[in-house]
């Protein structure tokens, strides 16, 4: 190493912020993650200019896969305009100057927190999840040394016992989000804190799914067409959330994940699509829900 280099000025921020050496390190981890679906690959996560827990893992993964010609979509809680989604999108607009979109179908890379888009993803798309606690066994066993052994030995009795205790106490499984899944019959994986409603979308998805946990320094992946099965019992099969007789107040959609919106002090509420792009697309196609401003007009 030359002494001259020590005195040189630091270079300007690189494309997509990360330096090339960091990207290479992350890319190597991504390849291992793809080769062993559901296994958490340790990686030397860097400090990012946003706080740990606010998407640093997802941002590092996105920064390492993103190219000039990509079209990026960022969502949080299913919506493109939530504050942290806006903040992360602006980060990439500034550091990578890539094209941005809110339309699921147009995006080549989608970074998400807590949701999977309603629209089915395709083979040319990559979905990047922000993950706070990548270890599905962490709340049962806080020690990394122990959970690592459990994964090594496929020793997943503990998590089944936990789910079974739920059934014994409540008559059903009481886990509603971050619901653990079994990947290709080998690794129990945390799907990130998405509602269990989204779990079936992970199974044999056509898109590549990448998971980044910055603070916990782990990356894992699901290649397209991978078996992802939510844990359950024969007599208590896995079920997803349902909203019987509920339609989106804006677009009239049924069978989607809903946000509940409180309308007044009396607690009156309505339900709207959590996926903002899905809802807006439907509205633009002429589907209207009962509280949509255009609805009354239409009815007359």
């Amino acid at each position: 190493m030359s002494l001259d280099q020590l005195t040189n000025e630091a270079p300007a921020y690189n494309f997509a912020y990360l330096d090339e050496q960091t990207k290479r390190m992350i890319r190597r981890a991504i390849l291992k993650g793809i080769a062993v679906p559901g296994y958490q690959v340790p990686f030397a996560a860097r400090e990012m200019p946003m706080p740990y827990g606010w998407g640093t893992g997802g941002v590092q993964v996105t920064a390492s896969v993103l190219g000039e010609s990509d079209i990026l979509k960022v969502i949080d809680q299913g919506a493109d305009d939530t504050t942290n989604a806006v903040s992360i999108r602006n980060f990439f607009a500034k550091t990578a100057n890539v094209d941005l979109t809110t339309h699921t179908s147009e995006a080549t890379v989608i970074q998400t927190r807590h949701r999977i888009p309603e629209e089915e993803l395709q083979e040319h798309q990559t979905l990047v999840y922000q993950v706070p606690i990548p270890e599905p066994l962490r709340f049962l066993e806080p020690r990394e040394t122990e959970t690592r052994k459990m994964h090594a030995l496929s020793e997943y009795g503990l998590i089944h016992v936990k789910l079974y205790e739920d059934i014994a106490t409540h008559g059903h499984i009481a886990t509603t989000y971050a619901y653990p899944v079994m990947v290709e019959g080998r690794y129990v994986m945390d799907p990130s804190p998405t509602p269990k409603f989204d779990n079936p979308k992970m199974h044999k998805s056509k898109a590549l799914q990448l998971f980044g946990a910055g603070r916990e320094k782990r990356i894992y992946a699901l290649p397209p067409h991978t078996d992802v099965v939510s844990l359950d019992f024969e007599d208590h099969p896995f079920t997803i959330q349902e909203w019987p007789d509920t339609k989106c107040a804006m677009c009239g959609a049924e069978g989607v994940y809903f946000d509940e919106v409180i309308l007044d002090d009396a607690g009156n509420n309505m339900f709207v699509c959590s996926d903002s792009d899905y809802c807006e697309t439907r509205q633009s196609e002429g589907h209207l829900g009962p509280l949509n401003a255009d609805y009354k007009e239409r009815m007359q």
Binding site: Y52, G53, W54, P132, T176, T194, Q241
Partner: peptide, 28 residues
């Protein structure tokens, strides 16, 4: 830095998960 990030991330919207929990508590 790790600690403050994760503690303060509770300020981020969590309404999707909260909705899931709300639904569960109602059922129970």
């Amino acid at each position: 830095i790790q600690a403050t990030g994760f503690v303060e991330h509770l300020k981020l919207p969590h309404y999707v998960d909260f909705q899931a929990e709300l639904d569960l508590i109602r059922t129970m």
